[in-house]
Design a protein around this nucleic acid. Structure first.
Lengths: 228, 228
DNA sequence: CCGAATCCTTATTGATACTG
DNA sequence: CAGTATCAATAAGGATTCGG
């Protein structure tokens, strides 16, 4: 018996698939490979360069990153773009279809936040992007209806500002014009406070401007499944 | 240079992980491996035996199924149980923590349903369980508020009944006591009708009892993102 | 038959070195 | 900076075997 390939083309065999006509299996065929959803997370706040992605995902390996980016572009969830001069660098950004994954990622993250071990392991990585992404994914619109606060976040060497208003969340890079509260600290400590709630015991961060009470009200707009 | 193993214990190296303190990365560490969420799907309607799972997931391979079941039990999302005599078989079932994945799976499935290619490829598999799972995952509680219908579904050689009432969905194995509508057909055709909506052009299924209009009202309680 | 465990081949990954 | 190339380690997929 001689094994005959399923298709006459020798170039890279059709991608591995579950071959099931099921919406869930289809989604997993598209975004279920290792690293894919974390790459989407890295792109939630705007375009990123190849090297940025490499730095944001320790352990991925450059060849695998290149392959994933190609696959994801093929799947229509990201696109490659050339920044106009003088920047001139090539960046990757989400398509609309890619951005629509946010709901699914949020559902996964909420499940994870209920059971994640605290405090954060010493040797786990945590950067600014995953922290801001956690704000997006743990946001609870119903709780947020009565909150109207802008919080400026200084994490590592990055600055973002997070606005909660009328049940909506908006996150932008850079400083806020008139923040109600400004916090600074390590990403791990900030996320730990959000996940754990008011009884946080994780690393340290400080309220640089505005009151601790204001920050507490701001933080209440996010799930803290382990804290109360 | 001699490569030194990262850990002194020779027995199965600690599981692969992203090593990120991020709720999403944690979830993907727990349930992001290949086949895991499809196994959860297979268990949504009650305990299943090893062989049932093997048949429901063509391509998984028996060794990998055994490994996944062990990992999932370790992660606390399933448990092994011995059915009392005379059945006596060992079955696997979801824990509460495992059942809580339903929301995340539903979000993934809704994303998939928006973009899945129709009609179903000829060589794709589709069984009764994934079909019933799709009912769960594409259910829209808001639309369903005004629907109160029990639909008995005959797919392949299985029978389930699906009740929509007061914005809630209930699916049970077996025939219904007094179904409003009874349908029969291949799983693919049924799911195709749900995903595509009233303009279905996929395979055939028939309304055995009750009216086509009743079934249409029933089906309206589920998303059909490609159909209207 | 049921529930795996074992063996073996292929595919994917992760780490590092290298190139336009 | 943005990737390729190479290669060892690991994971997946399939067939067969083994003990209730």
């Amino acid at each position: 018996m001689i094994a005959v390939p399923l298709c006459g083309y020798t170039h890279h065999m059709s991608k591995r698939s579950y071959h099931q006509f099921c919406p869930l299996a289809y989604s997993l065929d598209q975004v279920g490979e290792r690293w894919t959803l974390l790459l989407v997370r890295e792109l939630l706040f705007g375009p990123r360069r190849y090297t940025d992605l490499l730095n944001g995902l320790p352990g991925i390996g450059t060849n695998l990153l290149a392959k994933r980016l190609k696959d994801m572009e093929q799947a229509g969830i990201i696109r490659q773009r050339l920044l106009p001069p003088p920047a001139g660098s090539t960046v990757y950004e989400l398509t609309d279809r890619g951005r629509e994954l946010e709901e699914a990622m949020a559902a996964l993250a909420r499940w994870g936040a209920r059971y994640v071990q605290l405090p954060a392991p010493e040797d786990d990585y945590m950067g600014t992007i995953p922290t801001m992404a956690a704000f997006v994914m743990l946001f609870d619109a119903r709780i947020a209806e009565d909150v109207s606060i802008t919080c400026e976040v200084h994490a590592d060497h990055d600055v973002f500002h997070v606005t909660v208003r009328e049940g909506r969340l908006d996150i932008q890079p850079g400083a806020a014009v008139r923040p109600d509260v400004v916090i600074a600290g390590e990403p791990k400590a900030i996320l730990n406070r959000i996940v754990t709630g008011p009884v946080a015991d994780g690393g340290k961060f400080t309220v640089e401007s505005g009151s601790v009470e204001t920050f507490a009200r701001f933080a209440s707009a996010f799930h803290f499944p382990n804290g109360g």
